[in-house]
Design a binder for these strands. Sequence first.
DNA 1: AGCACGCCGACT
DNA 2: GTCGGCGTGCTC
Length: 737
Amino acid sequence: MGTDSPTLLDQLFDAPAQRTVPVLVPMPAPKPYSYLVPAHMHVEPGSIVQVPLGPRQVMGVVWDGEDRPDVDPKKLKSITHVFDCPPLKPDMRGFLDWVAGYTLSPPGLVARMALRAPAALDPEPMVEGLRLTETRPDRLTPARARVIEAAGNGLFWTRSGLAHAANVSSSVIDGLTAQGVFETAFMPPPPVVAPPDPDYRPVSLDPGQARAARVVCAAAQKGSFEVALIDGVTGSGKTEVYFEAIAETLRRGRQVLILLPEIALTAAFLQRFEARFGAKPAEWHSELAPRTREKVWRQVTEGGVRVVAGARSALFLPFTDLGLIIVDEEHDPAYKQEDRVFYNARDMAVVRARLGDFPLVLVSATPSLESRVNGETGRYSPVHLPTRFAEAALPDLGLIDMRRHPPARGGFLSPVLVNAIGKTVERGEQALLFLNRRGYAPLTLCRVCGHRFQCPQCSSWLVEHRFRGQIQCHHCGYAERTPEVCPECGTFDHLAACGPGVERIAEEIDGHFPGARTIVLSSDLMGVKRLRLELEAIAKGEADIVVGTQLVAKGHNFPLMTLVGVVDADLGLSNGDPRAAERTFQLLSQVTGRAGRTGRKSQGLIQTYQPTHPVMQAIVSGDREAFYQRETVERERALLPPFGRLAAVIVSADTRGEAEAHARGLRQAAPAAADIRILGPAEAPLAMIRGRHRFRLLVHGKRSSDMQAFMRAMIAAGPKPRGTLAVQVDIDPQSFL
DNA sequence: AGCACGCCGACT
DNA sequence: GTCGGCGTGCTC
């Protein structure tokens, strides 16, 4: 590092002539900063460098374009180090720029997402390898024989790897090395994953799958930008179809990225991949151990890793030759990041594929509305997969009209559902009860004075968590011990829990079936590790009744699960979100799909007070087409709010695509408004004050810091803004390209 | 985003 | 008398 630093002589004599380059630093500055390049240092656009920034050293990326330092030349500092690492390629730099522009985020913060592996920037150290020589030890013990046997393939072994393979301690190997039985050499570090073999174990596809596979393989063969949308119900074999596209891309020697929502829970997926390709894909998600993370990052940039399966952040890995992206469960809201840089990884993946000119495959049993519309308009190529299995293997879905079959007093489960659970358990099979609400009860009130427990920080109701003895705010994380006394009227022991959470449903189940093994699965009760173990235990039959939140809906298979009960199907329908029906439909499809994957007779029972609601009808009739068409019309209508006469509109939203959707709707609602612009929270206040028009400002901020920044900027701007301030729910884009 | 600087409450 | 809370401001 020291050799890169400018010497005193450099500074005295060369400084005036020194070249400067723009460098993106991991900071919310609107543009790159300028840095001096020391005389003998080589940098090019994309070089990953270390630079001084205020009191610390940070990493940055040399960026494109002419550098025009607009700062006192004496303040310019020099690049301290160039990392020995492949520079970011032009298409990656273009992608990062595009994302920054589109999401209204500082480019430095976007670039930072691509460099999320600090210690990986210099090459991994070489490791010492051992290879068998002709020499043999003077005394051949059984342990020594095993080692020689194991190492007999003429390849280099690591010391610990060989010890493990021969089932001996490493001191045996040290002994042999000392006698000259092994020669040592430095070799490149071992790959984090073995290379996948596209022809390892192809599965036979049924005619429907084969047809779909031909479409995606043709795209993979062509290798140019194209978006396929694979749409098929649970169990139709979508994964096998896109595996074929992956195989094709691997044969062409290019890298593949598989995006999955919440990969930490998808051990089953990795196994399926390994069974098909003979090796696991490299994983990329937030739970990764730092060492592994660095290795994966490094080997992805160098091209050693061929396939990455990852969460949304994997989209920002600097692949050396990415040739295909798969976005599985394309509709899943987990693809949206609403932190720092706001983006939807599914949409950004399409952009990355277009900029890199390679194909992309979107996959879902319940595609998002916007992807369906893009399929219909020909922007994407729809690939429909017919149902593979006989009807009998799909769960028999039915609604329970809660007005006709009300629960017992104080309970939340109708006798119809309780009955079905009883029969299931008697048969030695499993039942799953789904309720998308953590904790014991969503609201606590005082029976004497009517006081409701509210969050002191954000005004939502505090949720009782009885297992923990706490009441918690699910929005801001505020928590306190469950009180026994009403803070308002001082009455002791008269607090009432209102409404159900999973803990309360489990309590009700225990009352009905005291002998059954009931388990609660909720994200707040256990870490990812524990959860994985619990899911495995359940799959092995170590529980009779599972009560779970949303996480049970995500792709885990329970072979003995023959009954799925939805406790409150109406829950998500009344929260004012224009996507409520779509989301509920997707969630109910997914959770009822947890039953009936084994060929056994299985059923899904859905408790609802609105049995005629289009979502409920779509679920039981299986007529998804009609539902989607209706929802598309509804969504169009939601995008046309009654804004009356508007001269100008400024929109700010958490996801750029959502702001676009607003803007489109508003342009239609008010064609006279020529000046509809989309601005970030920092620019919007200024425009509000300087603008000469009447306007309406839409701000969506789940982040309080964002709103605070906005308000601060508004106050700093001085005069009182003209216009109205409205808070609007977020809406997904119909399209964005 | 991080980090320093700076100004007011409870404590070894 | 200090330690420490987080508000404000700056970084090529």
